[in-house]
Design a protein around this nucleic acid. Structure first.
Lengths: 216, 216
DNA sequence: TGCGTGTGATCTGTGATATTTTATACCATG
DNA sequence: CATGGTATAAAATATCACAGATCACACGCA
């Protein structure tokens, strides 16, 4: 708790900035399941007062990335196999819908953009590049122009992010060949092969839970 | 705006109470699409200060029941066919998952409870009983013990609630025979017939969008 | 007379801060 | 060693100050 994990923000649209900073921190796996956070600490780290942080945190609670404890402190939801299974089936169901819509509208430029994302240099540290994975999926999903389902999927990834924190800490990177399914998806997008794209996306989602739900 | 549409709340856990009151108001169809709401007005009606209302409203925005406008006022999202279609496909996908889980755990008492809900006296006014419909579905879904998907579905219903406001105003009740599919679902639950239950639920969801998306 | 424009009053949300309530940890006392 | 009370720290709420948007209305010009 001593050294800040999240960047400072500047002084306009404070609530949004605070939310963005925390959102980014979650997708980066900066928070560990079970960890507790305090409004004052966050406010100090972000360089604002409590008010904007409180509203940002309220949104994160609504999205399931944080939970209120009976003692009125906030905590990152602890690791829980049932929740993880739900997360997986919800992601499979909703991201399939987004992919379907996205494939109605996607164009060459976006596909090129996706290729650029996955071909970007991997981080040398050997840890899986969570941001790269996030960018790949959401660049694709945003093509759906969805205003209902896309926010739900964002919320799911936010919950998933805390779990990834553990993966990052405990696993070597080489064991997660995430780019394989990403390449399959891109190929299917080029061929406009819906079945194949759906299959590869499902495999990619399954993959990302393998380390967390080994029994499946 | 002169006469309050929402009940006052009592003085503990104000934020939760405020949220509950607003949530209830939405499922009751108390707010119309496009309507704007003000923090101060809501706070006055609820008998609290702005702070708890602000946090409750933040949650509703996160859930999509309210949106921030560029001019920083709050409004109930206007009617929009695309959003409605998304709402429908998301409901079909997620509520199927909840039903599946619920059928693993449901017992006789709950089924009896469901029968009691739909056999309760319809309101005499001739308007469709939104609360009864809500209670039927969520009594069922809560059996799933879901902590991830259930909140997502709550959010979907919250968005749907504003649209229902229009239905309530413009349509006679007799045209919506919602109890028919509910009875089919109960019968399927008794037989533990998953296929049939899923089919009836899907039909029920389709039905509830019929008036809003006539072309489908 | 009719239409556009400007101006001010009155809304709005935002952010900060003071006050109250509640939980928890610690220490004294039995 | 257990128990109870107190001190402390945190969150919850209320209140305040401020900036910006909207709306109505009056004024000036055609």
């Amino acid at each position: 708790m001593s050294q800040p994990k999240i960047a400072r923000i500047d002084q306009s649209k404070l609530r949004e900035s605070a939310y963005d900073a925390l959102h980014e921190a979650f997708t980066r796996g900066a928070f560990a399941p079970g960890e507790t956070v305090s409004l004052r600490t966050l406010a100090d780290q972000l360089g604002t007062s409590m008010t904007p942080v409180r509203e940002a945190v309220r949104r994160l609670v609504a999205e399931g990335a944080l939970v209120d404890t009976p003692s009125r402190t906030l905590e990152v939801p602890p690791l829980d196999a049932d929740r993880m299974r739900e997360l997986k089936s919800a992601r499979l169901a909703l991201e399939a819908l987004l992919l379907e819509e996205a494939m109605d509208r996607i164009d060459k430029d976006v596909i090129t953009g996706l290729e650029k994302i996955i071909s970007a240099p991997r981080s040398e540290t050997g840890t899986p590049d969570l941001k790269q994975n996030y960018d790949f999926h959401f660049t694709l999903y945003r093509q759906s122009r969805s205003r209902v389902i896309l926010p739900l999927v964002e919320a799911l990834w936010l919950q998933y992010g805390a779990f990834l924190n553990l993966v990052v800490r405990e696993q070597a990177a080489g064991e997660i060949p995430e780019h394989i399914h990403h390449e399959e998806i891109i190929a299917a997008l080029r061929d406009n092969d819906r079945k194949s794209a759906q299959r590869s996306l499902a495999l990619d989602i399954e993959r990302s839970f393998k380390l967390l739900l080994p029994e499946s």
